[in-house]
Computed example of a mutant assay.
Amino acid sequence: MKITESKVTKRLLTDLERLDPVTFITEDLGNQRGKLTVDCFGEAWTAYWGAMGCDSVAEFIDSCDRYYLAGKLSNIDSTITDYEQVGKKIGVGINRESLPFLVDELFIAYGDEWWEELPTTDNPDYVYLCRIVDAVKAAVKIELSQ
């Protein structure tokens, strides 16, 4: 059996504007490898990098943009179908469950490949995750500047 130690740092962010407390853990695994785990309001996301190009996970987080980090932490889509706009166009109230029953109306309104043409809007879950990532990035930036 081989036992390996790694450097793990846990941080708690509180008093955040419009966010519950955020806990994030960085784990430096050596050789420019690392892991990030983020927890907020009972939800948790994690990402691993086998080749960061930086000596620490904190430096790597600082170098990345929010969208890349959100995409690595979760598979939440950045946009969702805007059912309100679809409903206005076809003249019927619509939601995810009723969509399959309105194929004829969707075909008339949006064409042969209607599923590709439906209007979208920002996904609130993705926007929320990006706000959490922004808080993590801000904390890392402060930490690295000290």
Rank of each mutant, 00 (worst) to 15 (best):
R11V: 13
G93H: 14
K2E: 13
A51F: 02
M52G: 11
L13M: 04
I94L: 07
Y48I: 03
T81E: 08
L102D: 02
V127G: 04
K7Q: 14
E143I: 13
R131V: 00
L29K: 14
K7T: 08
L106K: 00
E17H: 12
E143N: 13
E5N: 10
I90D: 09
N31W: 08
P124W: 00
S78Q: 07
G53I: 13
Y68I: 11
A70D: 03
R131F: 01
D82V: 02
K2A: 14
N123H: 02
D15P: 04
L19K: 02
L118C: 04
I108N: 08
E97W: 03
V8A: 09
V38D: 05
V22E: 05
N123D: 07
Q32A: 15
P124Y: 00
F24A: 00
K10F: 11
N95R: 07
K89S: 08
T37Y: 07
M52W: 09
E113C: 06
I61C: 09
W114K: 03
L144T: 09
C40L: 06
D82K: 02
A47M: 12
S6F: 14
I76P: 04
Y126C: 13
F60I: 07
Y68T: 13
S145F: 04
L73W: 00
T4W: 05
E113H: 12
V57I: 01
A47T: 03
Q85P: 03
L99I: 08
W115Q: 10
E143T: 12
Q146R: 11
E59F: 05
D104W: 03
F101L: 10
I108P: 00
S56F: 01
L129P: 01
R131I: 02
N95I: 04
E43W: 08
D15Y: 05
V8M: 10
G34Y: 12
D15L: 07
D122Y: 04
D77A: 14
E59S: 12
E43M: 10
K89I: 06
N31H: 11
A44I: 03
V140Q: 11
D122N: 14
Y67N: 07
D28P: 07
L12G: 01
P124R: 08
E143S: 14
K2V: 13
F24W: 03
S74M: 06
G30F: 04
D39M: 12
V86Q: 00
P100V: 11
V8S: 08
M52I: 08
C130F: 04
D39G: 01
K141H: 07
G111H: 01
A139D: 15
D20G: 11
A138D: 15
I25P: 06
S145P: 05
K72Q: 15
I25F: 00
L12F: 11
A47Q: 06
L16I: 10
A139K: 12
E113Y: 13
V86S: 01
W49P: 05
E43T: 05
D65I: 06
L144Y: 03
K72P: 10
A135T: 02
D134Y: 02
T26F: 05
M52P: 09
P21Y: 00
I132Y: 06
N123S: 07
V136Y: 08
Q85R: 15
V22R: 04
G71E: 02
D122R: 15
G30S: 05
V8P: 01
L12C: 10
D65F: 11
A44E: 10
A109D: 04
D55K: 14
T79C: 01
L36V: 10
P21H: 02
N31G: 09
R11G: 00
E116D: 15
E5S: 12
